[in-house]
Design a protein around this nucleic acid. Structure first.
Lengths: 225, 225
DNA sequence: GTCTATATGGCGATAGAC
DNA sequence: GTCTATCGCCATATAGAC
C-alpha cells in the first residue's frame, strides 16, 4: 500500500518542511526589500517583517544578510537564463524565435519585476557578485544565440546587424518595463502598469524589431506613402 | 578703465570662489560614489575622500547627505532633459530627428555614465525623489515629442506605432550602455567600453529603429533574399 | 573654512532562555 | 525553532579649536 511505503520516522533532510518554507519566504521577502531599497538600504529587519518572522529567526535560516543576497541573486539568474533558453525552442523561423524570445522577456518583467530590479541594481553597481556567473553561464548561452543569428545573416534571412547589440536592445527594452516601471507609470499617468500595457509594449517591440531586421516586409506597410 | 570698474572689496556672494569650486567637486564625487554603491551604500566619508576634503568639511558645504543627493539628482535631470530638447532641433525629416536624438542619448551614456546610473538607481527604487520633477518637467516635454510623432504617423511619414513605447525603447536601449555597462563589458570581454563600442551601438540602434519605423527602405536591403 | 574629537542612532549579528 | 535582550560597529551629524 502507498501508506506503508513511507515509514513514520521523519526522513533525513537538511531542514524541516516548515524550515524550507521559511527559507523560501525569506528569499521572497528579500527580493521585495532589496528591489525597493537596494542591498545597503534594505535591512534584515525589513526582510523579517515582510516574511513575518523575527530578525534573529531570519539569521537562523541564513548565516548573514550577504548570504541571503547571494542566494537570491543565483535564483534570479537561474530564472533569467531559463528565459534565454526560449531562443532554442519556438519554431524554426527567425521571426517566430525572436517574437517568442521577446514575449518571454516581457513576461518575466511582468511576473517578477522585483527580481529584475534586484538584478539591475547589482549590475549598475558593477556586477561584482555576478561576474563569475556571467562568464560561466550567461556568456556561453549568449554566444550560442549570437552564432544562430550570424547564421541567419549568412543565409540572408535577416539584415546584417551586430547580434550582440540586438540582444542588448531586447534585454534593456523589455527589462525597462520592470526596472523603470515607476517612471513609465508616471509618464503614462497610471497607478500601476496593467496587463494591457505589457501587451502593448510586447506588440510594439516585436513589430519594431522584426521589421527593423528586414523581416515583416509584407505587413509593415505605412498608412500612406 | 576695466580695472577700475571692479572695486577691491569682495563682491557679496553666497559662497566664495573656492567654496563654489568645492561644492562642484563634492557633487562630482557624490555622482561617482552613489553610482557605484547606491544612495545607502555610499557614505559621506567616501564622497569626502573622492573630493579630497575632510568629512565634516563636506557637511559644511551641504547640510546633509540627503541634500547632496537631491542637488545631484536635479543637476542630472537638467542634463537629461537638455538632451531631450534635441528632438526639437536637427532637421525636419523624422529620420534626421530620430537619429540625432539617439546620438544625443548615446553621447550622454558615454560621457556621463555615472549620472545615468544614479538616475537609474533612483527610478528602480520608485523615483520618490523625482516624482515632482517627472510630472512637472519630463512629462510635458515628452508629450510635445509624442505629439510630433503622432503628426508623422498621420502624415504617413512613419509607420503607425505607439510613440510612448518608442521613446521608452530609445531611452532604455541607449541608457543600458551606461547603466549595464558592467554586464555588456563582461559579455563582450572588454576591460572598458571604448568609443568604437558606443559608435557600434549608435549605428545599430539608428539603423534598426529607422528601418523598424518604415523609414530607410532604400538602404536597408538584405545581403541576400 | 578646515580640522579633530565626539555625540547619537541604527544595523548586523550573537547570547541564551524557552 | 523561536524569541528577548544586547553587544559592537559604523555612519551621519555636530561641537568647538584653529
Amino acid at each position: 500500500m502507498l501508506l506503508n511505503t513511507r515509514p513514520n520516522k521523519t526522513q533525513p533532510r537538511r531542514h524541516s518542511i516548515t524550515g524550507e518554507g521559511n527559507r523560501q519566504r525569506i528569499l521572497s521577502a528579500a527580493e521585495e526589500v532589496f528591489a525597493a531599497y537596494g542591498y545597503n538600504g534594505g535591512t534584515v529587519g525589513m526582510i523579517a517583517e515582510q516574511a513575518r518572522l523575527s530578525k534573529p529567526n531570519v539569521l537562523y535560516y541564513f548565516p548573514s544578510k550577504a548570504e541571503i543576497y547571494d542566494r537570491l541573486l543565483v535564483s534570479i539568474l537561474d530564472d533569467w537564463i531559463g528565459k534565454m533558453a526560449l531562443f532554442e525552442q519556438a519554431g524554426d523561423e527567425p521571426a517566430d524565435k525572436i517574437a517568442a524570445y521577446i514575449r518571454g522577456k516581457i513576461a518575466f518583467s511582468r511576473i517578477r519585476p522585483n527580481a529584475s530590479r534586484v538584478f539591475a541594481n547589482e549590475i549598475i553597481g558593477g556586477a561584482r557578485n555576478l561576474e563569475k556567473a556571467i562568464h560561466a553561464r550567461l556568456r556561453p548561452q549568449l554566444k550560442k544565440d549570437v552564432e544562430l543569428v550570424y547564421c541567419w545573416i549568412r543565409d540572408g534571412k535577416i539584415d546584417s546587424i551586430d547580434p550582440y547589440h540586438l540582444f542588448f536592445l531586447i534585454w534593456s527594452s523589455t527589462q525597462s518595463y520592470a526596472d523603470f516601471s515607476a517612471q513609465i507609470r508616471m509618464l503614462l499617468q497610471k497607478e500601476q502598469l496593467e496587463t494591457e500595457d505589457f501587451k502593448a509594449a510586447e506588440t510594439f517591440l516585436i513589430n519594431l524589431v522584426l521589421k527593423g531586421l528586414g523581416l515583416y516586409a509584407e505587413s509593415g506597410a505605412r498608412t500612406r506613402g
